[in-house]
Design a protein around this nucleic acid. Structure first.
Lengths: 351, 351
DNA sequence: TTGAAAGCGGTACCAG
DNA sequence: CTGGTACCGCTTTCAA
């Protein structure tokens, strides 16, 4: 556990001054330091396994090349971690590192996490949420370049750029997939009342119906919740004891977990998927949708893309790429969802 | 985005020197600084919203009160995030902050993540994995106090303390729960071959059988994998077309997702849970086990406890609490799993 | 081409 | 009780 080598150590060993070391190791040696001194310095640095002290660097330069990511609960929850994965990808490729702090849905911790990060000279901040939601933007985020991923500034005069999935189109495309398969009676298990994503997906569903010149039956839309049991009970209500002619031929779910519940209900009722009933999920949760039996057709949330896009705009503003007008006028980026067709959807049964 | 107030700003405003500010704000004012100067200083600090620059502090003190958490994939995967949640709980309660870096299962990124953290003067390091596994400990971890959570040093001469769940006891307790319900023919869907957790859970299962004076049927144990489809197909093999007398009366799964597959298969075969078949999960995944239909009896992984225990021993060694002999001699902490009884298990059917 | 010195924001020591 | 000063490790300017 002995101390790391400093620039001074390198200088001594190479028989030069600290400044020379700094110049050479930062590529500004040529024209300033003798060729052979340069070699000795580089050699010494290597032998001592020297790397500059990041803390001292930050103090000196007033910037750290680290981006702080704070999230409401993406670390502890099973969802949406890939937003951070995508963000980290682009950060690393541009020579930044990310550190994440999770506040476990405790808004009181937001401010302190951001303060901590700011105190450590992060060059930028990104806030990531589990699930699309409005955010009461912590004040500190306005002190450095910042961006919102999967959430948006809920204040009357939004200040921060945000990137979110295009839920309306997602809902529409999902519905259209079913429509194209000939389904005309598609029930929608639409998630929970409070969530911002839920009504958008419903809107997409309505749009698709309208575009097809069909009218939607109000009783086909249920705000069921987000979990397996909600899917199960919702499906039972739709299917149990109702004649084939009265049944919806497809159930579209607002997430994959609901779809599991639906599958459980269908199996219990002796209905086969997709022959008797098509089922769609939403999210494309890893190791859920792809491993379901039958494998679940679903609308994939573009998690990594959201993270990438958010980090890209953030770094662009930090590094002053192109015009700032881009950043000013374009405060929202919508990333399209992606239809993933697997085995749980098929042609509507003829009757 | 104007600069933050520094100690000098406070000093000027209070009409004293920087040193006085430092003393007062660190509680060493009494006996060194005049009462009324103290008041002026505190007032000025408050008015300027002063807080010391963490970077400068770290540079000066050679320590930062931050703990770096690096993980193979707990941020991006849906699993085990609560280990970090638990760790963070105790860190915060002891005045430390944690920052996490996820390397997305890319071992090459481990070293660089740790180097980054070390360069930023973290006072300690914790490595967390998704799922119990041996770890090729990155060299840098030996340069500061470090601990392993959910993984263990795979080298011949382990150096780091690790905390892991007690999988053998978990497997045994799960099996005993079923035995106590009168089951005598319990099939085990045992996870994947390669995982270290799988054989331990099997060992627990065997232990329980042995303790009950029963012998296990080799063909009742299948290394199925970890996902829904594996559970489904495993269950079909066990149940489809076999007479009630030949069927296992319970299926114990190595995780909750397998149990979903089993439930799907059972429903398809018209078997009711738990009347005809008891099903157990393992892990107690949030919003999976508790929302299954029927709600899943399972063996809960003590995620938060693991995180807490790991962080506690780490901070104890950093702060030099009690004897270091504890740290030296006791390189493993095992945390018990917790049986969670819900509705998917019941008395063995009489036949 | 080189090295000395200032300064980033603190803390702690030491004369006064 | 107080203010001046050295130092943490680095970069950058400036004079030699």
């Amino acid at each position: 556990m002995n101390r790391k080598a400093t620039a001074l150590d390198v200088a001594k060993r190479a028989g030069v001054s600290r400044s020379a070391v700094s110049l050479v190791l930062n590529g500004r040696g040529d024209g300033n330091v003798a060729k052979e001194s340069q070699d000795r310095i580089r050699l010494a640095a290597q032998e001592l396994n020297y790397s500059p002290n990041a803390i001292a660097l930050s103090l000196r330069n007033q910037r750290s090349r680290v981006i702080g990511i704070v999230s409401d609960e993406v670390v502890v929850s099973p969802f949406d971690g890939n937003i951070i994965g995508g963000a980290d990808d682009v950060a690393r490729s541009r020579g930044f590192v990310t550190v994440v702090m999770d506040t476990e849905r405790d808004a009181a911790r937001d401010a302190s996490a951001i303060e901590t990060l700011l105190d450590r000279q992060v060059d930028g901040l990104m806030y990531v949420t589990v699930g699309l939601k409005p955010l009461d933007v912590p004040h500190g985020m306005l002190r450095v370049p910042s961006v919102l991923a999967n959430c948006y500034d809920s204040s009357p005069k939004p200040q921060l750029h945000h990137v979110i999935p295009d839920e309306i189109t997602g809902g529409r495309d999902a519905t259209e997939h079913l429509l194209q398969l000939g389904h005309r009676d598609i029930a929608l298990l639409a998630g929970a009342e409070g969530s911002p994503a839920a009504p958008l997906r419903v809107e997409g569903y309505r749009d698709a119906y309208a575009a097809a010149g069909l009218s939607v039956r109000a009783d086909r839309i249920t705000m069921a919740g987000w979990d397996i049991d909600a899917g199960f009970h919702g499906a039972m209500k739709l299917l149990d004891g109702v004649s084939p002619a009265e049944r919806p031929t497809a159930i579209m779910c607002a997430n994959d977990r609901l779809a599991i519940g639906v599958a459980l209900a269908a199996a219990r009722l002796g209905l086969s998927i997709p022959a008797d009933l098509s089922v769609m999920g939403y999210d494309d949760e890893a190791r859920i949708a792809d491993t379901m039996v039958p494998a679940l057709t679903t609308m994939a949330l573009p998690l990594r893309e959201i993270g990438r896009a958010a980090m890209t705009t953030l770094l662009d503003t930090i590094e002053g790429v192109s015009g700032r007008d881009t950043a000013e006028t374009h405060v929202e980026t919508m990333v399209p969802c992606r239809l993933v067709i697997r085995e749980s959807t098929g042609p509507a049964p003829t009757r």
